[in-house]
Amino acid sequence: MKKTLFITYGLLIVLTASTALISNSMSVSRLTIILIIGLSAVKFLLISFKFMELKKANAFWKVSLISVLGLIVLGIIL
């Protein structure tokens, strides 16, 4: 088992727990929505860069994925 994968997994679980905590303890507001979607975007990037090893890929793929994620996130929060 690779240590970096284990650390990434730990982070993903912590971020999921944080999302649950935020959605349970705060009423739905613009700030809550930004926080929840922001945490999901971080998890999305952790999976793609660490688990899918996108960090090893050509910059074109990294920039394209970040751009697509950015567009979706903006479409949701704006």
């Binding site: 979607i37 945490l39 999901s40 999305f44 999976i47 793609s48």
Partner: peptide
Amino acid sequence: HMCDLIWLLLFPVLYLIF
């Protein structure tokens, strides 16, 4: 992993933000 990525977008939007 793509299934994970899609779920990470679906879950907060469907279950949490409204």
